[in-house]
Amino acid sequence: MSRAFVREDDLESRGEFEGLERPLPPRPILITAAGRARLEAQLAETEAEEAALAEDTALAADSARQHLQREKRWLESLLTAAQTPAPEGGDEVAFGAWVTVEDAEGQEQRYRLVGEVEADPKAGAISWRSPLGRALMQARKGDLVTWQRPAGDIELEVLAVEWD
């Protein structure tokens, strides 16, 4: 039978399919010091899981081991390529800053500008490359910025710029 008609799931279960590598984000890859620490902890955890599977010869363990190896390669590449800029401080929004903004309805939101790999909008961590992140970059307290969104532009006032 031609290998063209073999499901990738079957190949992976037999350890013959490595799967796709996760792509790195566009360069420059920036991460905060806290983000770097989380990624290093995640790498250590992945290495520990891989070591725990080292003696298991079952096919399922082989597939899990391949997944962990891909994750480990991605984390190592990411940590090697990533830059962790020192916090700039001051009153201008830059990478790593916490920014409090207010919209026209008086609702306040607080965001931290971080790298793509550590962005978590629910926790207030937004990518510095996102539309909101780009709108906030280089703004100062009291500035009005326009957040361009598909649903319509929103004007925000920068209330505070803080640093860890």
Rank of each mutant, 00 (worst) to 15 (best):
E12N: 09
P131Q: 07
L113F: 01
W74M: 00
V145F: 02
E88R: 12
A60L: 10
R3V: 08
V145R: 08
A54K: 07
A60G: 07
L79K: 04
V6G: 01
A82C: 14
V161D: 00
V93H: 00
V158M: 03
V6H: 02
I126L: 09
A37G: 04
V93T: 07
P87G: 01
Y111L: 12
Y111D: 03
S13D: 15
R27M: 08
Q109F: 11
P25M: 01
V158I: 05
H67A: 03
D9V: 09
R149E: 06
P131K: 10
R14I: 06
E92L: 04
T57M: 13
E162T: 12
L11Y: 10
E162R: 14
R149Q: 15
W163Y: 01
A44L: 08
D10H: 15
E50H: 13
E12R: 15
E47P: 02
A52V: 10
G96V: 01
P25K: 01
R73K: 05
G133D: 01
A151G: 07
P23R: 01
L132N: 01
A64L: 05
E118Q: 10
A82N: 13
R65H: 15
P121Q: 05
W128G: 14
E116C: 05
S2P: 09
G106V: 04
Y111R: 07
A52I: 03
A82W: 09
F95R: 02
S63N: 05
G19P: 03
S127D: 08
A33P: 01
A135S: 11
V101R: 04
G115L: 06
P85L: 05
A54R: 12
P150H: 11
R110T: 14
G15I: 09
D164S: 10
W163K: 04
A94F: 03
T84N: 13
R7E: 12
Q42P: 03
D56C: 10
A81M: 12
V114W: 00
A86M: 06
L43A: 12
L136Q: 13
E116S: 13
D9H: 10
A41C: 03
L159C: 03
V117D: 13
T100V: 10
E49F: 03
D91C: 11
E116G: 06
I154P: 02
A44Y: 02
A34C: 02
E16A: 13
A34Y: 00
W74Q: 00
G90E: 05
I154A: 14
E21L: 02
